[in-house]
Design a protein around this nucleic acid. Structure first.
Length: 223
DNA sequence: GGCCAGGACACCA
DNA sequence: TGGTGTCATGGC
């Protein structure tokens, strides 16, 4: 598919999703740090469970880099237990908090002063922060025009026939950034809509009747 | 009771 | 470089 068609397809898919679902208002949070913590907690977890974990962190007054660093591992684990994998996530939240405390005095607002690719490299150097989590933080916490690739994006766009199933993260990300305007608000909404759509139509055993993308999808619905 | 959810890392060949 | 195991709760 040539570049022009690809750009047109991506724009078309976005408009279809937006029309069906409307704005998703991501990321639901009261602070940048809450978004950062949520990005870690949501790793391989259902968002409803992450909400519970974040709510418990708030109740325990543990939603800041400083508070997390001062908290005992056991107390932190107890708060985030509903999000699953709580022992590894304690390590990850502490590593992220330590990085933020060391580099920015714990102030997430200072991340805005750092150039996007530099910030991305720094985030990736933090234990427990992979590409998707780093990009989620860049986009949703810092408002940088960085497209987030997750399992849903991979699954849906591979079924649409627009990407290879085996495509790496970088390649998939470039597909979007090279064919869409570098607009953080657009990337924000697009990714949120992909997640919303996936939850309704594109699980492993797809129930795709009524899918707004059905007529542009190459997925074999008889499977 | 099994499957899956807004991943990342360790270990091995 | 790629494949596999591990981490764990809660909703359906």
């Amino acid at each position: 598919m040539d570049k022009e068609n690809l750009a047109q397809n991506l724009a078309d898919i976005y408009q279809r999703l937006l029309k069906k679902y409307g704005p998703q208002h991501w990321w639901p949070a009261e602070s940048r740090f809450e978004i950062m913590a949520g990005a870690v907690l949501t790793q391989s977890a259902a968002w409803t469970n992450v909400e519970k974990a974040i709510s418990r962190l708030k109740e325990a007054n543990l939603l800041s880099a400083e508070a997390i660093l001062q908290a005992a591992d056991s107390a932190l684990a107890e708060s985030i237990r509903p999000s699953g994998y709580f022992n590894v996530k304690v390590r990850k939240l502490k590593a992220l908090s330590n990085w933020l405390q060391t580099g920015c005095g714990g102030q997430a607002e200072k991340l805005l002063e750092i150039e996007s690719s530099v910030l991305r490299d720094e985030l990736l150097s933090v234990w427990g922060i992979g590409e998707e989590t780093a990009d989620s933080i860049l986009l949703y916490a810092c408002g940088k025009p960085v497209f987030v690739i997750d399992a849903y994006t991979r699954r849906i766009f591979s079924r649409l026939g627009l990407t290879e199933k085996e495509a790496g993260y970088d390649r998939l990300q470039r597909l979007f950034t090279a064919n869409l305007a570098a607009d953080a608000a657009l990337y924000n909404e697009y990714h949120a809509l992909i997640v919303r759509h996936a939850k309704e139509h594109c699980r492993v055993k797809p129930g795709c009747e009524g899918c707004v993308l059905k007529d542009v999808c190459r997925f074999d619905y008889r499977e």
